[in-house]
Design a protein around this nucleic acid. Structure first.
Lengths: 252, 252
DNA sequence: CGGGGTCTTGAAGAGACTCAAAGAAAGTGG
DNA sequence: CCACTTTCTTTGAGTCTCTTCAAGACCCCG
């Protein structure tokens, strides 16, 4: 099973990683050593996860908090109509399973897209952690604000613009982890996933992708993204350079 | 000037309020007495604001943080194309001007819709406040998560559904402040505001409102909202009762 | 070689947009 | 208090984007 996966998820092997340092990952950046050690002590041992595995499901009452070390995890909601609404894609460093109402059952599900490595925290200790580690909590608050800004940025847009925005976001985030060439970027998602992320139909996503390829902006085939014209992509995505060029989140 | 305003903004007079207790308002609920007193000491004296006045504008470098005591404040972005994207409507208790990048210029503008009362905090002290008042920061993190969940809930929807969702949200929030009858709810917004909130054209908002009135769901005229069929409104908005009936945010 | 999932393409239809113009309500000034 | 101006709302006609339904192609994997 694992051997077979490798061909496809070549970027995401299953390393034996029991000592990943929390400080390497985003929501904890800027947190002093002493606090980190306290957080390290609270967490459980990192665990690995097969692809297409659920961390938790919408409606689950208990559960844990997770810090993603390696791999891709998709967060989504299932609507009454049966439709799937993908909320976001967690990449290494992302904090998973925070929701505004901590005591309610989970309002969304989390599923791995690739083999993944995470460490977990007991759910009941989250308030305690937050109230005792204000610098961590501050990062968490700002991170939530980022998600909010991202969500507002991607709305009110045509299919072409929102697809461009999504791919540009992937491009920028992957760039943080890949030091080598980023000619071809592996994205473990299908056209249907894109559709469920942006609220479009798979058919229309397909047509729009064909159009973007024809226009020489980007190609997305066999889970490989190739950006042909980065400035055109920025243009389509509506990048606003005057604000904060280093951050995608200043995109309107 | 004020006398003239009164006829229209009868719900939002300009009281002389120098001693509003912070604890009455949402982001601080659950914060212990001692912390509240510290927060009270940090804030400036509450100020009043005329309607249609900007607290700050997109691109401003300095500024302050605000806690809204009374009135409506609209947060919006101006896109390169000149279009306006309304992010949210702040009501009493809302914390205003938080953004993910604290050191960048503001990525959005804030404008009062009614006469309003706010108290402000010096911007440079926000990190200090957050890191020294973890319980306050925790509330702030959860609040940001709420905004995020709200934003995801309102997307991927038809015009009718998203308008229903928006009005239901207003309805639920106003209900918290009005103890009496909520037959007619005053909303200081125009159809164009609704359009800019949901990413629709004013023309289509108008047609959809006519349709909703014809269907006997709700009427919105002269800034007065009258909900005729609450359960139909819940149905249209896609309320998911199995999660957390008391919170709009469990709506998908 | 066969089968399920994914991608591609066509044709028809619904939802939302644009342009345009008129009517109603609110704000302004004499 | 009335007449004027401005903003907001309403309606129609035509167009475009996106969806729906359907069928076939491709491709990975057994």
């Amino acid at each position: 099973m694992l051997a077979r996966l490798k061909s496809r998820y070549v970027h995401y092997p299953m390393p034996d990683c029991n000592h990943c340092a929390i400080r390497d990952y985003s929501p904890c950046s800027g947190v002093p050593e002493a606090l980190l050690n306290r957080l390290q002590r609270l967490r459980n041992k990192p665990t690995t996860l097969q692809p297409k595995t659920h961390l938790y499901r919408q409606g689950d009452v208990q559960g844990q908090f997770y810090l993603l070390y390696n791999g891709w995890v998709m967060l989504y909601k299932t609507l009454r109509t049966g439709k799937r609404h993908i909320l976001r894609y967690a990449l290494p460093g992302d904090f998973i399973s925070l929701q505004s109402d901590l005591n309610s059952p989970m309002n969304h599900s989390a599923q791995s897209l690739t083999p993944s490595i995470l460490c977990s925290f007991p759910r009941r200790s989250i308030i305690e952690i937050m109230e005792n580690m204000p610098q961590f909590t501050t990062q968490l608050a700002l991170l939530s604000a980022r998600y909010y800004e991202y969500q507002t940025s991607i709305s009110h847009r045509s299919a072409q613009e929102s697809i461009a925005f999504l791919f540009l976001d992937f491009y920028e985030r992957i760039k943080l982890y890949e030091q080598g060439s980023i000619e071809n970027i592996f994205l473990p998602i299908t056209q249907e996933d894109i559709a469920d992320t942006l609220g479009l139909t798979p058919v229309h996503v397909n047509r729009t992708l064909r159009l973007l390829a024809k226009q020489g902006v980007l190609e997305f085939q066999h889970q490989q993204l190739k950006v042909s014209d980065l400035s055109a992509l920025y243009e389509l995505a509506g990048y606003e350079p005057y604000q904060n060029p280093s951050s995608l989140l200043s995109i309107i």
